[in-house]
Amino acid sequence: MKILIVEDEIALQESINSYLKVEGYNCESALTFNEGQEKICMYPYDCLLIDVNLPDGNGLDLIKLAKSQNVTAGIIVISARETIDDRITGLNFGADDYIVKPFHLSELNARIYSLLRRIHFKGEDQIVFNEIEVNATERLVMINNSPLDLTKKEYDLLLYFLSNKNRVLTKESICEYLWGDHADNAGTLDFVYTHIKNLRKKMIDKGGQNYIHTMYGVGYKFTTK
């Protein structure tokens, strides 16, 4: 999978790059609008990460360009702007998703993972991990072929873990992924624990393994080890 990161801030772009590389993506980067323009026109990508604020242009114009070139890549807009308008504009221009700075790499990763699945497995969006089977189109989870009854948040949480296997996920990042705008609600941190406890219990009850490991004082990790 090839991903183009159009981001003028080198430190940000490098961090995204190094996180996504571990996931097995082939990342390329463009630091300016012009470089982005060039690369979008010349090479095929599966996913474009585009920062709206570029030194020599507006990232939204890159989306327009990509759409006019019939680029099939999924597009995620990275925006520092807050207002609902800006987000809607991004989506109206043809972006598939947006993420607001500052974000967590694990969240970006989850969104890329979900976007790429949507693009490549139209109609049959499935994730299989050992005994766990997720049908993302219908939001169904099976463990050992028996359906697992999850709440919406528990389902989101499981998908987040499956998107970030073998990664340390902090409570904060889980929180922001689950609650988005309402993550700054300080009370939510405590609920992460409750959600994880419930999810873990439901999975074990169905005969699944306990993949969710608590990293003391930090967060959680979804791993077979």
Binding site: E9, A11, L12, S15, I16, S18, Y19, N53, A80, R81, E82, K101, P102, F103, H104, L105, S106, T170, S173
Partner: peptide, 17 residues
């Protein structure tokens, strides 16, 4: 917003890495 969020983003991502 942009000028401050960018360094904050960098700190956040570096911490995550």
């Amino acid at each position: 917003s942009h000028e401050i969020q960018t360094p904050l983003s960098i700190i956040r991502l570096k911490c995550e890495l």
